[in-house]
């Protein structure tokens, strides 16, 4: 069988079997592994891990600080909003008051003006009434005079010498009344 000789040839140039079970290399591997582990442990334990831990703690602190300040700002904003709302309500109430006052004042002025106007109107009306009455009276008197004069003229013309002015006047007054 050709392969066996070939395999045997090959076995010479490559290490026999599994290199993992070549016990002659074990002390070497173990030595270097221990060196590596010790070096790595010191690098990590002395430098890397404390640094990462401090960075993480810093970040946690920063985040906490930011959260705290955000909380505070939120509180401040809420307070400001409350104050604003209160101011707004106050201003509204004040405006209401001012409007009410103004309204009352206007009403008062208006009432006064109305009363004054009423009085004026009443006075004017009374005056006019008086004037009308005077006119009526005077007109009634003039009618009577005209009637007296007319009656006297008629009587004079129809029956001259009869009747005097006094009788005629009484008769006209009786006729005008009746």
């Amino acid at each position: 069988m050709a392969e066996t000789t070939h395999g045997a040839d090959h076995a010479v140039e490559s290490a026999p079997g599994m290199p993992q079970l070549d016990f002659s290399t074990f002390p070497n591997q173990i030595f270097w592994l221990l060196v590596t582990l010790v070096v790595l442990y010191f690098i990590l334990n002395r430098v890397a891990l404390p640094r990462i831990a401090s960075v993480l703690a810093d970040r946690q602190g920063a985040i906490q600080r930011d959260l705290d300040s955000a909380e505070q700002m939120k509180r401040q904003a809420l307070e400001a909003e409350e104050a604003y709302n209160k101011a707004l309500a106050d201003a509204r109430a004040q405006a209401q008051d001012i409007v009410g006052e103004a309204k009352a004042e206007i009403q008062k002025d208006l009432d006064k003006a109305i009363v004054k106007a009423d009085a004026e109107i009443a006075a004017k009306a009374a005056e006019s009434e008086k004037a009308i009455k005077e006119i009526r009276d005077s007109s009634a008197k003039s009618i009577q005079e005209v009637a007296n004069a007319t009656a006297a003229d008629i009587v004079k013309a129809m029956m001259p010498g009869s009747g005097d002015a006094k009788t005629i006047k009484a008769a006209v007054a009786a006729r005008l009344k009746g």
Binding site: T25, N28, I30, W32, T36, L40, I43, V47, A48
Partner: peptide, 24 residues
């Protein structure tokens, strides 16, 4: 020998170097 620098040494050293670069 137990102290001979071998490819084991080399690659463990590389691992330490990479760890140092990454973490330090």
């Amino acid at each position: 020998h137990w102290y001979t620098p071998t490819n084991v040494t080399l690659w463990m050293l590389i691992a330490v170097v990479v760890a140092t670069v990454l973490l330090v």
